Simulated scan of single mutants.
Amino acid sequence: MNKHKIFSMAFSSVYPHYINKAEKKGRTKTEVDTIIFWLTGYNALQFQEILDNKTDFETFFNKAPQLNPNVSKITGVICGYRVENIEDPLMQKIRYLDKLIDELAKGKSMEKILRS
């Protein structure tokens, strides 16, 4: 089975797009980072290494310190797919992140985005 193209893309090549999407809607890079840290368990230092090393999405998620235990509360449609029904575990994690960034850009409060 062929791997999806995004799995081998450098996280650092997509990260600026997350920030841009958020900033266009009046949100901040800090909020994007908070979402990423919440989802993956990375801290700022670890995350900077990911960016500096041009780590791919597959490695980014496989080496994440701890996927947030509330990740199952992330539901809804992103890119035409219900995130809770995506079968490939890696693609599901990528879409979880996409969904959270989408919610940020749509003006949801951080409390709701982080499933507090």
Rank of each mutant, 00 (worst) to 15 (best):
F60G: 01
D88V: 03
D98R: 10
M9E: 14
I78D: 15
Y42Q: 03
K3H: 04
G41K: 03
N2D: 11
L90P: 15
K99V: 01
V71H: 12
N85W: 14
K63T: 15
M91F: 03
D88R: 03
F47A: 09
D52M: 08
H4S: 03
T28D: 04
T59H: 01
G41D: 03
E103D: 14
L100R: 08
M91Y: 05
Q46T: 02
T30L: 08
E87P: 01
E84S: 09
T75D: 13
M9W: 03
Y96M: 08
N70W: 00
V14D: 13
T40C: 07
T59L: 00
F47C: 08
I36E: 03
Q48W: 07
T34E: 12
H4P: 01
I78M: 13
E103T: 12
M9V: 04
T40E: 01
L51P: 02
T30G: 02
K99C: 12
E84A: 10
Q46F: 02
R82N: 14
R115T: 12
D102G: 15
V14F: 05
H4M: 09
K5D: 11
I94F: 14
R115Y: 10
M1C: 00
N43S: 06
S72P: 01
D98A: 15
S12N: 07
I36F: 10
S12I: 11
M110Q: 07
E103M: 14
F60D: 01
D98S: 15
G41L: 02
T55K: 01
Q48H: 13
D98P: 00
R82A: 08
F7Q: 01
I6H: 07
I36N: 09
L114T: 01
H4F: 09
F37G: 08
K112T: 14
S72W: 04
D33H: 10
E111Q: 13
C79D: 13
E111W: 05
E103G: 15
M9L: 06
Y15N: 02
P65C: 05
I50L: 04
K21I: 10
M91R: 05
F60W: 01
A105V: 04
N85M: 15
K5S: 05
G80K: 02
M91D: 08
A64E: 06
S116T: 09
V71W: 04
Q92Y: 05
L39K: 02
N85Y: 15
T55Q: 03
V71K: 11
H17V: 10
W38R: 02
Y96G: 08
A44V: 11
D88S: 04
W38P: 11
L51F: 06
E58Y: 00
I35P: 13
Y96F: 06
